[in-house]
Write a protein that binds this DNA or RNA. Structure first.
Lengths: 112, 112
DNA sequence: CAACTATATACGCATATACTCATATAGTCT
DNA sequence: AGACTATATGAGTATATGCGTATATAGTTG
C-alpha cells in the first residue's frame, strides 16, 4: 500500500475529524490520557493523579469514552478506564515532536 | 533512537499540545488545510475553495499561521498560504485511519 | 433493608470562540 | 495623489464548553 493521494474528505468526515481533535484539546483530558499510558486505572486513582475534582474527572472520562478514545470496565463499585484507541500514543507523539521542532526552529530564528 | 518512554509532559507542554489540537478542531480550518495539500494558494482562492466569507477565512488563516501550521508569503497585493508544518499530513492521516477503524469496528459490533 | 462507597449527572455561571458586518490597511495602477 | 483591489481587523452577538456545588445512581456490606 503506497502513500494515499489526498482524496478530499466529505463534510461529515471533516466534522468527525474536528470533533476528535476537539476532544484532545483539553489539558485535563490529556492529563487523563497520560495517566493511562501505563495501564488501566479507576476513577479514584485518576482523580488523585490529575488533581481534579471527582465530578470533573468523571465528566472528562465520559467525553473521552464517548469518543472511543478510552474504554471502560466496571468491577464492582469501581470503574476502570484504559486507552482504547491504539492511535492515541502515536498521535501524541506526532504532536509532541512537531512542537519540539517548532520550538527549536523558533529558538534558532531568534539569533542571526 | 528507540521508542521513547512515556515521560510525563509538564503542565506547560500539556497546554501547548492542547492548544495545537484546538487549532485543528474546526471544520473550516481543516477545509483550509485540505485545500492546501496540493500546494500554496492565495486567500481569494481559499475563499472560493471553502465557500466561507473573506473575513472568516482570513481569521482562520491567521489562527493557523500563528500556530505555525501554515506559512505566509506575500506577493504584491496577494498573500499565499501553504502548509508549513510537515507533521500535518501525517497527523490527519493518523486521525482519519483511527476514525475509519472505529466506524468499521462499530459496524461489526452491531451484528452479533 | 439501611448505611456506606464509588461513580455519574443536573444545574448554573463564567469564559472562550466562531461568525457576520463594517471598516481599516497595504499594495497596485493610471 | 486618487481610485481600485486583496487582505486584515474591530465590534458585537450567539453558542459552546469547562468548572464547582449539590445530588442522583449503582453496587457493596452489615
Amino acid at each position: 500500500m503506497a502513500k494515499k493521494p489526498h482524496r478530499p474528505l466529505s463534510e461529515a468526515a471533516l466534522q468527525l475529524v474536528a470533533a476528535r481533535f476537539a476532544v484532545l484539546a483539553e489539558p485535563m483530558r490529556l492529563r487523563l490520557i497520560q495517566a493511562l499510558f501505563d495501564g488501566e486505572r479507576n476513577v479514584g486513582e485518576l482523580v488523585a493523579a490529575t488533581g481534579g475534582t471527582q465530578a470533573n474527572v468523571s465528566r472528562h472520562l465520559q467525553t473521552l469514552t464517548a469518543a472511543h478514545i478510552l474504554a471502560r470496565r466496571k468491577a464492582g463499585l469501581q470503574v476502570f478506564y484504559r486507552i482504547g484507541d491504539p492511535s492515541i500514543p502515536q498521535l501524541c507523539d506526532v504532536v509532541c515532536t512537531a512542537i519540539e521542532r517548532q520550538l527549536t526552529k523558533q529558538a534558532g530564528t531568534l539569533q542571526t
